[in-house]
Design a binder for these strands. Structure first.
Lengths: 193, 193
DNA sequence: CTTATGTTTGACACTGATGTCAAACATGGA
DNA sequence: TCCATGTTTGACATCAGTGTCAAACATAAG
């Protein structure tokens, strides 16, 4: 197999992910990706076809990491602690960097959904997966706490709230405020009845 | 005062709003606005200066309408009914049109915040106002229902959830599912303890 | 050492968008 | 009626981005 790729795919996709995190799917051009990865535009076209493909690959990596981190954060002995830890993890991820990068999946849901059905599907799949992770982790915790709604609905509400928090982050709410919002939800879900 | 504007500002800004709703802030070009309003590009530049100005004016109109509708939806005799009616109103607004237009303020928070501080401020102001409306309406309802968190926190959580629902709408969740999410929150907030 | 294979590169032709401007134009007020 | 004032128009120069391609190139396999 002669004629071999000169750049490291993993490094390149990692750098591409950085670019997408910083600029968002829509605002990122092939020019930006070339500059950010150090790989010529023509090579990127040749290797991947275009922006959408590169994004989907980079996003896959991002989603896997995020889900793994979320699952770990949810490993706590009681539901309240698990949820608070989970939201802490999200807030920290969203507010990281300066200027803060926000939540890539939320951003993608909003700005790529209309123009890239595949990106929409990727985000949808990730959110469904996240919902499952939250549900399974919560149902594995037997601490006598029973939300007023069934666990499936609670899990979806939790995922939805992470999206809401991501939006609130974009309009200037700081980490402390975001955690307060999360706390309000967690308290409402786990308050004794 | 001779040399008089040939187009109706109200009609034009209304049409501009339609364009922004359909395409989003970022994807909308002055060309699109000219086509959508029937006013020449040069005239738009002359009258408003540019896209950002037009957007801010159109968004102001949109925000005022949305807030008025929200306040009306919250006029119900008990907290649970008020919140469900409020979320119904939101879901209906987000899912309107085909393809559905989604939530303009959420979209703007995500895609305009980085490139237009004024747009970010406008969205932030609208969300703060919405929070106040929700808070005031809820606190005016004396039905003996007391959420596990204080009303201010509850109001912010409600607003955050509307944002989350707007994102979920973008990745393919239909009105019925969105209402279920809202129901889960409302039930959690208003469940007897 | 050569060859076949796939990769890299810079250039090319295009498209869509921006912001500006002078000239043509319309109209309320003197 | 005529003029001053502000509006409209189409054209212009410019820029950023797209997608493609032939030629130059690197290298694993024979």
């Amino acid at each position: 197999m002669a004629g071999v790729r000169q750049f490291d795919e993993r490094v390149t996709l990692d750098r591409a992910l950085d670019v997408f995190q910083a600029r968002g799917f829509r605002a990122t051009s092939m020019l930006d990706l070339a500059a950010g990865t150090g790989v010529q535009r023509g090579s990127l076209y040749h290797a991947y076809g275009g922006k959408e493909e590169i994004f989907l690959r980079a996003f896959g990596e991002y989603a896997a990491r995020f889900l793994a981190g979320a699952a770990e954060a949810l490993d706590r002995p009681d539901k309240r602690a698990a949820l608070l830890s989970f939201f802490d993890y999200c807030v920290e991820a969203f507010a990281a960097g300066s200027p803060s990068r926000g939540c890539l999946s939320t951003r993608t849901a909003i700005e790529a959904a209309t123009e890239s059905p595949r990106a929409e599907a990727a985000v949808r799949a990730m959110l469904d997966e996240l919902e499952t992770v939250v549900h399974d982790k919560l149902s594995a915790i037997d601490d006598g706490v029973t939300p007023a709604v069934d666990l499936r609905a609670a899990a979806r509400l939790v995922v939805t709230t992470t999206r809401g928090i991501a939006v609130m982050e974009r309009v200037g709410h700081g980490p402390a405020e975001l955690r307060e919002i999360a706390d309000a939800l967690v308290t409402s879900l786990t308050a004794p009845r």
